[in-house]
Simulated assay, not measured.
Amino acid sequence: MSLFSWLRKPKPGLDLAQQQRVEQLPPPRELGECSLRDQRWVVVDLETSGLNLNRDQVLSIGAVVIEDGAVDFSQLFERTLHRAETKLNPSVLIHGLGPSAIAAGCDPAQALMDFMEFVGDSPLLAFHAPFDQHMLGRALKDSLGYRLSHPFLDVADIAPLLCPEATIREAGLDDWIEYFKLQVGERHHASADALATAELMLILFSRARQQQLDSPLALQQRLSQWKRRKQAPSF
């Protein structure tokens, strides 16, 4: 036995049927040269117990699908996860997930399995995606032993990339909603925020096409170039 083997987390306690479902999840597709309209996108938003990347937990998952150039309301996802021992911080005052809602939630492994079957091989979009990507990836590893490797694009970067005339750098989702005068009925719970992000992304896809960025791969490449320029030291 390795000296440090006792430090490793045990594999998730999945039964045979659950393990088979994990093994049957399709591998993610790399972003390609099809049109933006032809690509199926999953827009996701998470509510968490806090903002600590290593300690806090996913409490709920909301997601909508963009396909054929529109939000497909027949493809919606929402789950609250049961977290028996999670201490809630003041963020519950924003997303409204109190102890009773979390106590009535789904088994985390089941909820996460359902979500990844919903995602399939599609790329993911989120506002401030690095946080959602990290938290979702850790939850999947802890509950399913699954490594998240889907393309995950950040709408918070795509918006200023495609709208350089906007003077709202480092803006939040509410700022972009106001900038484009979107009519959003609800905010600050996972499914409503995913829908608001999707509506924003439809406008951004239109902007991308106007700028001759009409494939997922072209958008990803332009975004990577833009981020590198932003991070380059100025002299």
Rank of each mutant, 00 (worst) to 15 (best):
F131Y: 13
L125I: 10
P108N: 14
P151T: 03
A159Y: 10
A104Y: 10
A126H: 05
C106S: 15
L153K: 04
L173G: 08
L93I: 00
V119F: 10
D132T: 00
L97S: 11
L148F: 15
D107H: 12
L140T: 02
A111G: 04
L144S: 08
S91Q: 09
L144R: 05
C163G: 00
A104Q: 15
R147Y: 09
G172A: 05
L148I: 03
P123Q: 07
H150G: 06
E117K: 06
H95D: 04
A159T: 11
G105M: 11
D132Q: 03
K141L: 12
L162E: 09
V119L: 14
Q110I: 06
A103M: 11
P164D: 08
P130F: 01
D107L: 08
S122A: 15
L93D: 06
P90V: 00
M113H: 03
D107Y: 04
T167H: 13
S149D: 13
E170I: 00
L173S: 08
F127T: 00
I102L: 14
S91R: 05
S143C: 15
E117S: 08
S91H: 09
F131I: 01
G120L: 04
S100D: 14
D107N: 15
A166F: 08
G172W: 09
L93K: 12
V155R: 04
V155H: 06
I102N: 13
L162T: 02
P123E: 03
I94A: 06
Y146W: 13
D121Y: 07
H95S: 08
P164V: 02
M113G: 12
D175C: 09
V155M: 08
C106R: 15
L162K: 02
L112S: 09
A103K: 15
V119E: 06
L161S: 06
A171Y: 13
A129W: 01
M116S: 02
S100N: 13
D132P: 04
Q133F: 00
P164E: 10
F127E: 01
A109W: 12
L124C: 07
F115E: 04
E165A: 11
F127I: 00
L140N: 09
Q110W: 12
F152T: 01
P160S: 07
F115W: 07
D154P: 14
A159C: 14
L140H: 13
P99W: 03
V92F: 14
P164I: 02
Y146R: 10
A129G: 11
V92P: 02
I94K: 11
F118S: 05
I94E: 01
D142H: 15
P123F: 01
K141I: 00
P160E: 02
P123Y: 01
Q110E: 15
S143M: 13
E117C: 06
V92Y: 14
G120R: 05
G145C: 08
S143L: 04
P123H: 02
F115A: 04
L125Q: 07
D154N: 14
F115P: 03
I158A: 12
G137R: 05
Q133G: 04
A101Q: 15
H150K: 11
D121T: 01
G137D: 06
S149I: 00
S91A: 07
T167E: 14
D132G: 05
L173Q: 07
A101H: 14
E117D: 04
D174H: 08
F131T: 01
P160A: 06
R138N: 09
E117Y: 07
H128G: 04
